[in-house]
């Protein structure tokens, strides 16, 4: 494992900790898209089917379980926790995420490494992850004002993607047969979605001002 991959995993983990912190500390999930969170649950469950078939390392297994567990906990809080669910901005979270699920699944049936149950679900999870942030980004755009923790959550998620791209570049040059074009192309698309957000995040950081997105 190279340093970029590790940095990517850590920023991914930090983003989840930031989100859990926001929900637990403020007892509020305002500004957070339940649809994006539900998509992440599907992404992790579909991708980590290999928990039952392949063992890579303790690190991999633990991280997979953490990602599945934390994403389930977040969705549970937003749907079931009495205080938290009252703060959910339902009217701002109207993205039709079922289309993303359907579209990703159809794409996985067409484009995959092997036509097996596990490989189809792996490709599906890669495609779905690429677009899963969209409901969240649309929601931020609609609300305009972004609170600090929500802004940091999205920032760390974007950083995770950026580090994974550096990781692939590194692997491409250091490993003789590294070719994972499905993951790399989807990863590029996914990271591109964050470009706009990053732009406004850095401007607000530079000016030491609250993050505001244009309507």
């Amino acid at each position: 494992m190279n340093i970029f991959r590790f940095a990517g995993d850590m920023t991914h983990l930090i983003s989840i900790v930031v989100l859990l912190l926001k929900i637990y500390a403020t007892k509020s999930c305002s500004g957070i898209s339940l649809k994006t969170q539900e998509l992440y649950v599907i992404v992790f469950l579909a991708r980590y089917l290999d928990l039952f078939t392949d063992f890579i390392s303790v690190y991999n297994t633990v991280m997979k379980l953490v990602f599945i567990g934390s994403s389930l906990a977040i969705v549970w809080c937003m749907r079931m926790h009495r205080a938290v669910k009252r703060t959910y901005d339902k009217e701002l979270d109207t993205f039709r995420h079922y289309f993303l699920v359907l579209g990703s699944f159809v794409l996985a049936l067409l484009l995959h490494e092997k036509f097996t149950f596990q490989e189809i679900f792996w490709a599906f999870s890669i495609y779905l992850e690429a677009v899963a942030i969209l409901p969240q980004l649309v929601m931020l755009q609609r609300s305009g004002n972004v609170d600090n923790l929500t802004g940091q959550y999205v920032f760390f998620l974007g950083a995770y993607r950026a580090f994974y791209i550096l990781n692939w570049i590194y692997r491409f040059f250091t490993e003789p047969h590294f070719s994972r074009w499905i993951a790399c192309l989807s990863g590029l698309v996914q990271t591109a979605f964050y470009a706009d957000f990053f732009y406004y995040y850095f401007i607000s950081w530079k000016n030491n001002a609250k993050l505001q997105l244009p309507a």
Binding site: R5, D54, F67, H177
Partner: peptide
């Protein structure tokens, strides 16, 4: 070639 197919990323 076999080991290249291991999906070792998260």
């Amino acid at each position: 070639k076999e080991e290249d197919d291991v999906k070792d990323e998260l």
